[in-house]
Design a protein around this nucleic acid. Structure first.
Lengths: 149, 149
DNA sequence: TTAATTAAAGATAATTTTGTCTTTTATTGT
DNA sequence: ACAATAAAAGACAAAATTATCTTTAATTAA
């Protein structure tokens, strides 16, 4: 579905948003630890997200990543996916035709239209703030508990 | 969504089923040409599909690939996807948690449940025969027309 | 039984994705 | 100014995916 990079990016963004809502900036080490992702790779992904203006970063002592609660309300999941994976997941043909449209559909075009539509709707509607508050509630998680690896 | 291998595998299977319904066996060269895929790679994928018992192959003069019309009716898209990509696409967590369930859900679990459910339903219901007849009707396609590359 | 044909199998290569490491730049506190 | 901190940037490495090439095995027809 999404690339690993995108999965990490989404998890990281949610974690940062949750922390930021409590006024806490977090470093890359914390992020990687709390979402169970490889730290240097996650750092690379954070560079994409900061360049895209989705997450704010600050260098130096006391620095780290943050996203203001106001920003979290307006940031949609689709922006994160777009920045990292592009739009291929919710546009683009289900079985890889270079050109697939109503005028020239692949055999699964109509079925996939529904699925991609639902996905697009979800990505477009879901805000970072919603996901962050899910995590804050304690009922939703960004990693599995008691990990050994 | 699906891997390239799986996209080729689905397209190839549909093409073969469409031809087989007319009593025509097709060679790998034809398959690759008609679905616009790299021939040697497609050959590898066909090996997976024949080993899985989804497509039948025959060596030697007049040989090639085929799938009986009766088999086409009972073969579901999910069998092809399973054989090539496994079940990760319709099971597995949307943002990559190793363990993601009702008891321990990720923040997008409920939204993804709907999407994955729709995808799984589609894959489970759609038969190779349906897709093959779509192509035979001439209204649905397995490649883009007038390709230069 | 030999030649032609065609898929299977195995080895290899290119590309992309994922992941790591080192150096640089910016910021803060002293 | 200086040291400590932390992200950015860039080079590098490993793994997975995609793709190709060569050889082998099976089948058919002459």
């Amino acid at each position: 579905m999404f690339s690993k990079a995108c999965e990490y990016g989404i998890r990281a963004s949610i974690f940062i948003a949750a922390k930021s809502s409590k006024g806490i900036r977090v470093g890359i080490k914390d992020v990687a630890k709390e979402i169970d992702s490889p730290e240097p790779f996650t750092a690379k992904i954070m560079q994409i997200l900061t360049k895209s203006g989705i997450i704010h970063s600050a260098k130096g002592v006391g620095g780290g990543f943050e996203v203001s609660p106001e920003a979290s309300k307006s940031i949609k999941l689709i922006q994160i996916v777009d920045a990292i994976d592009g739009n291929k997941i919710y546009s683009g043909c289900g079985i890889g035709l270079k050109e697939c449209s109503e005028q020239h559909p692949c055999p699964v075009h109509n079925e996939f239209k529904k699925i991609r539509g639902l996905l697009l709707e979800m990505l477009t509607k879901t805000t970072l703030e919603q996901l962050a508050s899910d995590v804050k509630s304690g009922d939703f998680f960004l990693k599995t508990l008691n990990m050994k690896d």
